[in-house]
Simulated assay, not measured.
Amino acid sequence: LYHNRWSVELFFKWIKQHLRIKKFWGTSENAVRIQIYCAIITYCLVAVVQHDMKLERSIYEVLQILGISLTDKTHLRDLFDKSNFKNVNILCDSSEPNLFNF
């Protein structure tokens, strides 16, 4: 029983570190599962894009760039070739609209 509990703890630690889930919305088991599945699918898709495009950025940086440019209709190849995307921290201070600002 302890081994199973430890596996669950490690799984949620990995989720918090890599999927950036701050809190779970909804109280039902199904709501939590859907949120975890969506985060895992997003993480995997970004990892595939990073691998296929041979980007020399971390998955976290790729997620930040994609999150900031969600409303932009720029092709992915052009998005990551722009010279102003060298430092992702500068993008976070951008005045462009961002869907994740609350």
Rank of each mutant, 00 (worst) to 15 (best):
D78Y: 08
A39R: 01
S58I: 07
Q64C: 08
E61D: 07
R77P: 00
N98Y: 02
N84P: 00
F102T: 02
W25Q: 12
W14T: 07
S69F: 03
I36Y: 05
R5D: 11
I65V: 11
A47N: 07
C44S: 11
D78E: 05
Y60P: 03
N98L: 08
L63M: 06
I41V: 13
W6P: 03
I21E: 00
I15R: 06
S95N: 12
H18Q: 10
S58H: 09
C44L: 15
S58D: 05
S69I: 10
C92I: 15
E9D: 05
K86N: 09
L1T: 06
V49A: 01
N89T: 07
I59D: 03
L66I: 03
T74A: 03
R20Y: 03
K16C: 13
K86P: 02
V8N: 10
S94D: 10
F80Y: 01
D93I: 09
K23T: 10
C38E: 13
T74R: 08
M53P: 01
D78C: 09
E96W: 13
P97C: 08
D78T: 15
S69G: 05
Q50S: 13
F80W: 03
C44H: 14
Q50E: 11
F24G: 01
V62M: 00
V32Q: 08
T42N: 15
N84L: 12
F24C: 04
N87E: 08
T42V: 09
F11C: 14
V88G: 00
W6A: 13
R57T: 01
L76E: 04
N30I: 09
I21A: 01
S7T: 07
H18K: 14
W14F: 14
D72Y: 05
F80S: 00
K23N: 05
K54I: 04
F11T: 15
